[in-house]
Design a protein around this nucleic acid. Sequence first.
DNA 1: CAGGATCCTTTACGATACTG
DNA 2: CAGTATCGTAAAGGATCCTG
Lengths: 119, 119
Amino acid sequence: MKKEPQLNTSSVCKYRMNAIKDAMEILSGKWKFHILGTLLQGGKMRFMDLLREIDGIAAKMLSKELQDMEINQLITRTVLDTKPVTVEYEVTEYGRTIEPVIDEIAKWGIEYRKSLYQK
Amino acid sequence: MKKEPQLNTSSVCKYRMNAIKDAMEILSGKWKFHILGTLLQGGKMRFMDLLREIDGIAAKMLSKELQDMEINQLITRTVLDTKPVTVEYEVTEYGRTIEPVIDEIAKWGIEYRKSLYQK
DNA sequence: CAGGATCCTTTACGATACTG
DNA sequence: CAGTATCGTAAAGGATCCTG
């Protein structure tokens, strides 16, 4: 009796799985995709704009997430010399590379919502 | 002088953003994508298999995330009548609809890793 | 306006030990 | 093997007040 050739899933796709893990290190959290999505389609936005747009987020969380994303170069933060100050947030070119991911999530989310109403 | 027609970003894309929010309600957390990705390419897998595959996860977390995902019908849990018991986890057809999302995350993660080494 | 500081509650997450 | 129980830390999340 022949033994099945063992398909070693352990090593074959570790690379891919580590990539997912690394990606989630940057992108995890309830709000990152939401903020990024909002910013991607809103262009330059101010703190208050984001706070209004993003339903349910607290100022503290928004502030913290924005800082994270600035550190990771996904967005830029620009302070304009007005009175009172204006601060603009914008997605960087690098941040834009996440757009396909967000598109897929949005697509899935839309279908998911549909399935909820069908039940 | 003509005034630009105001593109009302507030309402136009609320739908999409809510979809993202809903999706993240189901998929957020450090491990969901990782577990799902592992299970997608490993087929039927047992608890210990997953624990070994998924680097860094604790049994408690794995157990909890699996329960969540079972409730949300992303995976099935099958108990086989052996001694000691065998439990198999498998992605449902519905769970498979998340594959494109995971593919995009993996793709992005791979590029992200590359960019790390270039610095 | 754009937030930080403070206080408090609730989840998320993790390590270790134990059970059917 | 497939988990649960227990305990502890760290973040998430909310409310209110404060500052340049």
